[in-house]
Design a protein around this nucleic acid. Structure first.
Length: 491
RNA sequence: GGGAGGGUGGUCUAGCUUGGUAUGAUUCCUGGUUUGGGACCAGGUGGCCGGGGGUUCAAAUCCCCCCUCUCCCA
């Protein structure tokens, strides 16, 4: 960050999001008091009150929908014995480099068996699943946990986006057939659209990841990429078809109708709420600070009394009246601190409170108030008698409005490329490239490395919502194309 | 994984080259005057100068190690 010298710190944001995203994001985090990065372990940050309230609400929404879809909650230990962890070899290989290990305890010193701080909970849960699942009548078996996980990230960390500890939900489901598992993957994707796009206002597209980029131990991985504008994408939730890859080593078996013992078919789904929060504030925020969806804002309405000498009393009385009228349905706050009016405006805009109500002496005289919407700055003079209905109306539409504004026209960001040079140019122009590619099997991994090195983009791979294959040859190796893929820069 | 730059009251910082009482602003607290888009006056609180070691009569400053943050590139 380019530090400003000798400048009194204002509460507001001083750099534009478009000109310097990193500096903007850092200022937002600090000044809106979302995270405190002064906790002295690399990659670990403190989530402050304002962020925590919203994150808890996001969890609640997600959990409600998962439970509606038949999931039950669990709380699992955060330590996993090494012997569990080693059972599925591909999984171990993928996660081993990132695991925090607990090797010592108390004054007695070294532990007999080292314990992993869970980087994800498959190897903790499936041991238990093997004990709990007995019959086809137990299936489908759908459980989820809301927890934190630890991964020793080598990449640059950034609050909420990427840390060595993050907060997520993981759902782990078992089915008697492969078809059941495949249906679950589709349900996971629907849930993702509903939450991320409709509730949190972030536009996404699902891709089937290539074999070399899938979840370690999965048969297939489907991952949502958030479209962050300017062609860059950010991976958000992914859902994984595990098939019987884990069921066999963990012995997740059931007795079927025909009396035979069979292995279950599994899926897992992992929305990282902390990262979704980061993506949300980054995507929706503006030069004034946060913009939040209505339901998950820590404060939904702030009432600001404008206090003139000798008229404080009538204004405060009116403000309290309005507060009482709205507090049943909404989270309302009166800011009657002795700061000046203007600095209160800036402060609550920074905090992303969706609705501001101003009450001044003039308003009291006219039996009206001033209502301002945070996300578009629209200002209304509202008759006192109409206020409740007016606010309810804003509340209903607020999130829809910010979603519509934030939906990126995906098609306009795509550029079809038949030549590598054209593709490189398109990537450099901030486009997502659509092109032919040899295949998504491991054999093609080195061609993806070529893409990364020569083009600066990553193969996000096959789009889930289309099945086209219109390219004759692979853009990179020139052999017949096996599929149509998308290539984009990534955060 | 590679590179660059930082860490001094809560925050932003001056001082470091050339070692010698820690600089200013802001926040916060007290009192007063104010208030339709970042108010003002007066007084006050607040520092193991990121941590450890070394050199020195003397270290924020010089040397070594560590921690941590930010940014850029793969």
């Amino acid at each position: 960050m380019a530090k400003k010298k000798n400048e009194a710190p204002l509460t507001g944001i001083t750099v534009s999001k478009e000109e310097d995203f990193s500096a903007w994001y850092t200022e937002l985090i600090t000044k809106a008091e979302l995270a405190d990065i002064r906790y002295n372990i690399k990659g670990f940050v403190v989530y402050r009150e304002w962020a925590t309230i919203t994150i808890k609400k996001m969890y609640a929404k997600y959990e409600e929908l998962l439970e509606k879809n038949g999931h039950l909650p669990l709380i699992m230990p955060s330590l996993i014995p090494e012997s569990n962890f080693l059972l599925e070899s591909e999984h171990v290989e993928g996660f081993a480099p990132e695991v925090f290990w607990v090797t010592e305890a108390g004054s007695s010193g070294k532990l007999n068996e080292k314990l992993a701080l869970r980087p994800t909970s498959e190897t903790a849960l499936y041991k238990m699943y093997a004990l709990w699942i007995r019959s086809y009548k137990d299936l489908p078996f759908k459980r989820y946990l809301s927890c934190q996980v630890w991964r020793y990230e080598g990449k640059m960390t950034r609050p909420f986006f990427r840390g060595r500890e993050f907060h997520w939900i993981e759902a782990h489901d078992v089915f008697s057939t492969m078809e059941g598992a495949e249906e679950q993957v589709k349900e996971d994707m629907e849930v993702t659209y509903k939450m991320i796009q409709d509730e949190f206002g972030i536009p996404i597209i699902f891709f089937e990841r290539p074999q070399w980029d899938k979840f370690s131990g999965a048969q297939k991985t489907f991952a949502a990429d958030a479209l962050m504008g300017s062609g860059k994408v950010l991976q958000l939730p992914s859902t994984h078809l595990l098939g019987q890859n884990f069921a066999k080593p963990f012995n997740v078996k059931f007795v079927d109708k025909d009396g035979e013992e069979k292995y279950g078919y599994q899926t897992c789904y992992g929305p990282a709420i902390s990262r979704i929060y980061g993506a949300m504030i980054a995507h929706l925020g503006d030069g004034k600070g946060l913009i939040l969806p209505f339901d998950i804002a820590p404060v939904q309405i702030v009432i600001i009394p404008i206090l003139f000498k000798n008229k404080e009393q009538i204004v405060l009385e009116k403000a309290n009246e309005i507060f009482d009228e709205l507090k049943e349905k909404f989270i309302v706050k009166i800011d009657d601190s002795d700061k000046s009016m203007g600095s209160k405006f800036y402060y609550w805009e920074l905090k992303g409170v969706p609705i501001r109500i101003e009450v001044g002496p003039k308003d009291v005289e006219k039996n009206q108030v001033v209502v301002v919407k945070r996300h578009d700055g629209q200002k209304f003079f509202v008759e006192e008698n109409d206020l409740k209905e007016f606010i309810e109306n804003i509340a209903t539409n607020y999130t829809k409005e910010i979603k519509e504004k934030s939906v990126v026209d995906f098609e306009s960001q795509i550029e079809v490329a038949y030549e590598k040079d054209a593709a490189i140019e398109a990537i450099n122009n901030g486009k997502i490239v659509c092109c032919g590619f040899c295949s998504i099997d491991r054999a093609s991994e080195h061609w993806a490395e070529v893409v990364e090195n020569d083009m600066g983009g990553l193969v996000r791979c096959k789009r889930v919502d289309e099945e086209k294959n219109e390219f004759a040859t692979c853009l990179i190796c020139g052999k017949p194309a096996g599929c149509t893929v998308y290539i984009a820069k990534s955060y």
